[in-house]
């Protein structure tokens, strides 16, 4: 009577399992990047993040890169975080190379379908980009373009599978490639996310899909990270713990409300609040920022002690100057060549 059209489906009577042999041997083929070499050497690794410009000024990428490059083994370029359009991560990664540093190009599955993933991976390789990090991508309702149509043709795990597949020399259609892109593939995980057991399986899935390193969402509660690390220890993956230095209580509250997967305790918010109490203007700003740096340093020092953590990933979010400060103060400077 109604026109919600359905057709009978083939009824599966035996257990359905994935046909994709995900455990790829791509670690053999992975190009030797500085990041990979550092992680495999067992040295405590530092990566940092450079935010792409909100516009077309490529000088900004090189400037921001120069600020942090001596303090990081590789530099992440984010990909339209929260759906706020910024310069293409591939273009920025190229400028990072020009500025003399090694990029980690982030790719979100929110804005590209499988065709664009393949196309951009070819382009990225051709531009000399070797570290690629796949993320699901924040929901657009959290950003400035909530009316956008989201893609999610693939999720981040399937995107890793796709990249691993390209490394075998064929595209998704089975066509032989004119030049094989080889990457050091990475992924993320968020120890704050639920349900824990399923999130741990996702790390395993990502590893099986080709991820060789992981960067985490920003950590403020190291106890939760520790619990998580115990669970993923048998997977033997390389993990860089995420650190976001807080500029003040306002930023902390904003992140709790608007940045997915972040948990900042009231205790930390109160510390930032009281650091600037009774002060005004520059003096207050300085005092609050110093406290933000202190909180981040404490996190770094605690994270260093956690078994299975191979390094840190500092996401400065427009406060690139904090990266040299944090790396020096935590005794991680100078970086090995």
């Amino acid at each position: 009577m109604y026109s919600c059209i359905a057709q009978p489906k083939e009824i599966c009577v035996s257990l359905q399992t994935g046909s994709f042999d995900a455990r790829l041997k791509n670690s053999v083929q992975s190009p030797e990047t500085k990041l990979r070499r550092m992680l495999r050497s067992g040295k405590f690794t530092v990566t940092g993040e450079v935010g792409p410009p909100h516009g077309a000024d490529d000088d900004l990428v090189r400037e921001r890169t120069r600020l942090v490059k001596d303090y990081c083994d590789a530099i992440n370029i984010t990909d339209n975080v929260r759906g706020i359009p910024t310069m293409s991560s591939m273009a920025c990664a190229h400028f990072v190379i020009q500025a003399g540093a090694e990029p980690v190009m982030q790719m979100s599955s929110r804005d590209r379908n499988r065709i664009l993933f393949e196309s951009e991976l070819y382009g990225a390789y051709a531009l000399g980009i070797r570290n690629i990090l796949f993320v699901t991508g924040d929901h657009t309702l959290l950003g400035s373009h909530p009316q956008a149509k989201m893609v999610y043709d693939l999720d981040s795990i399937q995107a890793l599978q796709l990249a691993s597949h390209l490394m075998s020399g064929k595209d998704l259609a089975g066509e032989k490639l004119e030049g094989i892109p080889l990457f050091h593939l990475g992924a993320t995980f968020n120890p704050n996310a639920d349900p824990l057991e399923l999130q741990v399986w996702r790390v395993e899935k990502k590893r099986d899909a080709g991820a060789q390193f992981f960067q985490t969402q920003a950590i403020y509660d190291t106890a939760r990270l520790e619990e998580y690390m115990e669970q993923i220890e048998p997977l033997g993956v390389k993990v860089l713990a995420g650190v976001i230095p807080l500029k003040g209580p306002k930023m902390a509250r904003f992140m709790n409300e608007r940045i997915p997967g972040i948990r900042i305790s009231d205790e930390i918010v109160n510390r930032l609040e009281s650091a600037g109490a009774g002060m005004k203007g520059e003096e207050k700003k300085e005092a609050v920022r110093a406290e933000g740096i202190a909180v981040a340093l404490e996190t770094i020092n605690r994270v260093k002690m956690i078994r299975g953590i191979n390094g840190i990933h500092i996401m400065a979010i427009g406060w690139e100057e904090s990266i040299p400060e944090l790396v020096k103060a935590s005794g991680l400077y100078p970086r090995p060549k």
Binding site: S109, R110, T136, G137, D138, H139, M150, Y152, D155, S156, I157, Q158, T188, F189, N190, N192, A193, D194, P195, L198, Q199, R202, K205, Q217, P260, G261
Partner: peptide
């Protein structure tokens, strides 16, 4: 997000 290997890190 309609993803097939969820949940994402925002859960």
């Amino acid at each position: 997000k309609g993803i097939l290997n969820g949940p994402c890190g925002g859960s």
